[in-house]
Design a protein around this nucleic acid. Structure first.
Lengths: 259, 259
DNA sequence: CGAACTTTTGACAGGCTTCAAGACCGGTGG
DNA sequence: CCACCGGTCTTGAAGCCTGTCAAAAGTTCG
């Protein structure tokens, strides 16, 4: 295994500083000079890991801080008054969560750990004060929120217009690109969420997810390795064709067969 | 008609200033003192109205400005590579559009006028410069984007989990609250979008929309006045029950029958 | 007043959900 | 080490909600 595997954030013990953190270029890719990083470093708290299924915050909780995920993964969901839940996103190492709580000072969504997950805690008060002085940080926050809006709108298109096959293909391709961008394999990774979560997120029944995975395996579009959670994507061309995705960045693995 | 009607923005000729505009409290509800309003006023351009079906900007166009809608209404949609369109929002007088273009400096969605529509044009360069000095304006922008995220996530829940009846009820209740908040009638308004647009937005076929409207009329939940675009909501209780909405603000018209 | 478009209504079909049952998996304790 | 147990995942059969196709009725506007 020459590829680094997920969830192995190098030397991220409680004592490590932002400057030394392997995620620094991911979680806050802003052009802070040494002094600024120190200031950010000073306000960040590093707590103990969250266990699988732990609720990190609940919809309606008072907004306290933004979290940078250092390892592990989480799901975020909204709950309707009648109790129906809709997963609106999965987040992995190197991603920032909780930003949209700063409007109304309450978290608008619940967030739960999908596996053992470690985070950096950035208390809002300090972040707010720091942002006043740092235009780059403000831009970074705007950037994150803007991107979230675009992603959510792509999800609306998916939920409104795509067939079940296309939905699953879109999801896999998106995950693939996301992992690739962070330096992990684009074709082989672990699905840390259950089939249930996947179905919920994609607007499909669990059984449908399962059936499509079976079909995709038959068609040799993908395969599972050992468990039903470790996946290898075999036919990216077909997946991309099905996904009909906005060219987010660029196809990570090879060019399309013809072009 | 004691109620003011939609699209009648009092004395909003090309010469009116922000200070005198009847929308000022809506489009930029920020605590600017007189001097600041003058500065904002100076950078705003008031163009001629857009005609129905006019494309205000297209997905991928260079980001130039944010628009405040003074009268009329628009639809915004994303387009997938294969050409499928998904309407992601409708916007009415007093609302700000185009904000999420400031990430990537391109508009991520297309926007088209649903009827004759007038706007105030706020060029980005000047807005950006102004925002540097005005924390309130920055907060307002963050606030808008944060709200958009929450709304989009509610739409994901709708598209993923709700039946066609619930979707239409949710839409009507949302519109009702939106109009009410802006001082218009909560029970009687004009649907400026076509059944087609409505179906597209709600993830349903045009025919389904039409059928549900017919059913709702039979059940005396609503009725149409003169045309198929002018609607009156008769049974808000049933609509709210169907909608299963997050208590956005508060029921505008009367309390629920029991409580 | 007619052409083009929007809206409505009906009949039918299909994709996905629901219901049900069995297989598989991971963790625990004897 | 292996049997057991709860949960997850898979697979099959049946049914329903909504989409599709088709045509008529209504609306808009030159």
């Amino acid at each position: 295994m020459s590829q680094k595997t997920l969830n192995s954030v190098k030397s991220c013990g409680t004592a490590v500083s932002c400057q030394d953190c392997t995620l620094s270029s991911l979680c806050l890719p802003i052009s802070l000079d040494g002094h600024d990083v120190d200031r950010l470093d000073a306000i960040i708290k590093r707590g103990r890991p969250f266990q699988k299924s732990h609720t990190i915050w609940r919809q309606g909780d008072d907004f306290q801080s933004v979290l940078a995920i250092r390892s592990g993964s989480v799901k975020s969901f909204v709950t309707s008054p009648s109790g129906e839940e809709q997963i609106v996103g999965f987040h992995f190492a190197g991603e920032l969560i909780g930003l949209n709580g700063l409007f109304k000072k309450k978290y608008p969504i619940s967030t739960v750990a999908l596996e053992t997950t470690t985070v950096c805690d950035i208390p809002y008060d300090s972040l707010d004060a720091l942002a006043d002085d740092l235009p780059e940080l403000r831009d970074q926050i705007l950037h994150s929120m803007s991107q979230e809006i675009s992603e959510d709108q792509q999800m609306m298109l998916l939920l409104s217009k795509k067939t079940s096959d296309q939905r699953l293909a879109t999801f896999l391709v998106s995950l693939s690109e996301r992992f690739h961008r962070r330096g992990y394999s684009a074709t082989r990774f672990r699905l840390t969420m259950s089939r249930n979560d996947l179905g919920n997120f994609l607007g499909l029944a669990v059984e449908t997810i399962s059936r499509i995975f079976s079909k995709f395996q038959q068609q040799e579009i993908l395969r599972f390795i050992d468990s039903s959670r470790d996946i290898e994507l075999l036919d990216m061309d077909t997946l991309y064709e099905l996904a009909d995705l906005q060219d987010s960045v660029q196809r990570p693995c090879g060019s399309k067969s013809a072009s």
